[in-house]
Write a protein that binds this DNA or RNA. Structure first.
Length: 730
DNA sequence: GTTGTGCGCTTTTTT
DNA sequence: AGCGCACAAC
């Protein structure tokens, strides 16, 4: 018998129960910070080592590439060997793998290509054009949403129920047209990956049985984020062995707005009647006070599965609440706290500034820049989403598959080579009339010699260029291919000769693409290196910046903070209309999702949690007076340490001026306090006309806004504004 | 075909 | 306020 005790070492009882559950359907309700990933990886280790299940028979699914990598890494660490052959990855990645293996059965061309949201939008715009619909009345974005929502519910255009509503009919028409275009150009969008993979398994009996048999054990992370099609796919694959081990937390479901169904958790127990449920409720992350405050918030939600996190740790600091005058004051407060933290030896990377919407990062960035404090903002444009990178890849895509109209449209005049809209419209018209690709149409139109000489030669040169590129890259290795493409397309040259800062950055990105190719290892044996790289670029957009390991303050939206933890967390902008967001306030379901978001944010904090709101916030160029978020009312007062703003907000001044001003004032704080409150200090005994005698426990702020916490012998602890409290030294 | 101007929009994000 | 996009002028 292999010794498997190392798998269980250091796990608590509930975690052990979960890891060692008998095969069969299992639902693990894993609270924030309860060791979810650890349970998941230990479970896989247990299957392999304890039950001698072959890694080949295991399917493990996550939502993000990052989570997949992390899981892979941890399992290999635990088992001490690479887990080759195990199907582990994101839903989309696995669906892609399936479709590459069985493209024929799935009704796809061998060289089908994945398009991202951006490409999808372009294609929808084209469909709109072909149907002669005005984009002003039919916003492409909305149609994109419409199409994806249907696909993620498993409905193709033909399966959407007919509606007497004219608008619905039009939307459906665009959906149909879009499907046609995808089919014609061999393109697959993200939801299509899921839908197609689902249909493949559902409709093809041979394959279904094969995979049902193969995947003896299926494990799913972040189950609360699965949408309908993902769940159906899992159900289908698990139908034979029924060993579906899902881990999730209904309280952390924050993606309902993009189709995730928390209800899948409830549905799971119905679909698999003998499901064993394990709750992981011991939190190893946050202090008692932080947890208590988070629990107080989340308990307001209805229809929860019911779970109460607890911790063995001490109470720790109270949760701090700062009422700022405006967003600048809020930012200064936050950065001052971080500075204190760093001065006391804390790491910047262990501090996170969280916000509801990305626009809020701006003020923090300005103040951080001013304070010369390194920071990193998450959630910008990612590497493979940058326009210049997408241009470059489009050259390769077109060289690879001439029918790819999305790639064609993207680069036919990028960089500009004298092919204008008039010329292109003729090509487009011809393509549509003949139902052929733009590439083919170009050839035919050129053969007709119907263009003016200038347009003709420009178009001809483009065709030559792509042919030349295609020729030159055959039998080259991937980085060389990229290099040739940058050269032949003149893309790099084009950006390099522009001296502007942005253009320089673009040129650098293009050069970075060569290194990305050099570091790339082929993920799918089925594909050649170039195809594999192109699929990788679509499926994994890559991090925003090159990995910087500098010790940085972390700035991100609440959504991107899920799954992370920090010593010190600032949850900012807690104002009605901002958080909860205006668009979620009227609908109870959406409001509850906002509340979960708040819960997620709070439970990111390990030791220190600061909540803040601004009384005035400038948003979209307008100043708004705000009300504190209702979520703040939901935290019992005694759990909060309320800090008032130190002084009224400076009206104007540049940031640098007012900032240095501020820090000066701050360093003078003890003097200011002494001015206002001579003889006062922590530990001093004071008397209050109403509450009697007590001892000063704490002092916050300076000058007129200073507040003191006095523990009165009769009335207990109170926070008082020093200027008005009429205290006297005893 | 490129460059400039004005208008409208503005939650969250992964694949 | 700031950005992207569409249309109009050069």
């Amino acid at each position: 018998m292999v010794d498997v005790s190392h798998i269980f070492d250091g796990l608590n009882d509930a975690q052990r129960d979960a890891v060692a559950l008998e095969p069969g359907p299992a639902l693990i309700i894993a609270g924030a910070g309860s060791g979810k990933t650890r349970v998941l990886t230990s479970r896989i280790a247990w299957l392999v080592e304890g039950l001698s299940i072959s890694p080949l028979s295991i399917l493990a699914v996550t939502f993000t590439n990052k989570a997949a990598r992390e899981m892979q890494h941890r399992i290999e660490e635990m088992l001490g060997v690479p887990v080759g052959g195990m199907w582990m990855g994101t839903f989309h990645g696995l669906a892609h793998r399936l479709l590459r293996h069985h493209y024929d059965e799935a009704g796809l061309p061998k060289d089908f290509q994945i398009i991202d949201n951006d490409d999808q939008l372009r294609l929808i715009k084209r469909a709109l054009k072909e149907l002669a619909l005005d984009e002003a009345y039919w916003p492409a974005k909305q149609i994109q949403w419409f199409i994806n929502a249907h696909k993620e519910e498993g409905r193709r255009a033909a399966q959407v129920s007919q509606s007497p509503d004219l608008q619905q009919q039009t939307l459906l028409g665009v959906y149909q047209q879009y499907e046609k275009l995808c089919r014609r150009f061999g393109l697959v969008d993200f939801s299509e990956l899921l839908l197609r993979a689902f249909e493949l398994v559902r409709n093809n009996e041979v394959l279904r049985q094969r995979y049902q048999q193969r995947f003896e054990h299926i494990l799913v992370d972040e189950f609360q984020d699965t949408n309908s099609i993902q769940y159906e796919w899992l159900r289908l694959l698990a139908a034979q062995h029924k060993n579906l081990f899902v881990v999730g937390d209904d309280d952390q479901s924050i993606y309902g707005w993009r189709g995730a169904k928390v209800e899948n958790i409830l549905q799971f127990e119905k679909d698999f009647p003998n499901t064993r449920t394990v709750r992981l409720e011991q939190n190893y992350r946050s202090t008692g006070n932080i947890l208590a405050a988070a629990n107080a918030i989340i308990k307001r939600n209805s229809g929860r599965l019911g779970k109460k996190l607890w911790t063995d740790d001490g109470d720790g600091d109270p949760v701090n609440l700062y009422n700022a005058y405006n967003e600048t004051d809020e930012a200064r407060f936050v950065i001052d706290r971080i500075r204190d933290w760093v001065n006391k030896g804390g790491e910047r990377a262990q501090t996170a500034i969280l916000y509801r919407s990305n626009a809020q990062s701006r003020v923090f960035e300005e103040i951080l820049l001013d304070a010369a404090m390194p920071y990193r903002v998450y959630g910008g444009l990612r590497f493979f989403e940058r326009a210049e990178i997408k241009d470059a890849l489009a050259y390769l895509r077109l060289a690879n598959s001439r029918v790819n109209d999305v790639a064609f449209e993207r680069i036919v005049n990028t960089p500009t080579r004298g092919i204008g809209n008039t010329t292109l419209d003729k090509v487009r018209e011809h393509a549509q009339a003949q139902q052929i690709s733009l590439w083919e149409a170009t050839g035919q139109v050129l053969a007709q010699k119907s263009f003016a000489a200038r347009a003709h030669s420009a178009l001809d040169a483009f065709v030559e260029l792509i042919e030349e590129l295609s020729l030159q890259i055959t039998d080259q290795n991937l980085p060389t291919q990229i290099g040739i493409m940058l050269d032949v397309s003149t893309l790099l040259e084009h950006h390099k000769k522009d001296r502007g800062e942005r253009a320089q950055a673009r040129a650098e990105n293009l050069e970075e693409l060569v290194s990305a190719a050099r570091n790339f290892s082929v993920e799918d044996e089925e594909l050649g290196p170039l195809d594999s790289f192109l699929a990788h670029a679509a499926l994994e957009a890559g991090e925003g910046q090159a990995e910087e390991w500098e010790d940085c303050v972390q700035l991100m939206s609440l959504h991107s903070a899920k799954g992370l933890e920090f010593d010190m967390v600032f949850l900012t902008g807690l104002e009605e209309g901002l958080f909860p967001h205006q668009r979620s306030i009227d609908e109870p379901g959406r409001l509850e999702e906002e509340r979960r978001l708040c819960y997620v944010g709070m439970t990111r904090a390990m030791k220190h949690l600061y909540l803040s709101h601004a009384e005035v916030r400038r948003l979209y160029g307008r100043e708004n007076h705000t009300r504190p978020s209702r979520f703040l009312d939901e935290i019992p007062e005694e759990m909060l340490n309320v800090i008032r703003a130190a002084r009224p907000s400076p009206r104007s001044n540049s940031y640098s001026n007012s900032s240095s001003n501020y820090s000066q004032k701050k360093s003078n704080a003890p003097a200011a306090l002494a001015d206002t409150l001579p003889g006062f200090g922590v530990g001093k005994s004071v008397a209050h006309p109403k509450f009697g005698e007590g001892v000063i426990m704490n002092i916050e702020g300076q000058g007129d806004y200073a507040r003191v916490q006095v523990n009165f012998s009769s009335a207990g602890a109170k926070w008082l504004v020093a200027a008005y409290a009429n205290l006297s030294v005893v």
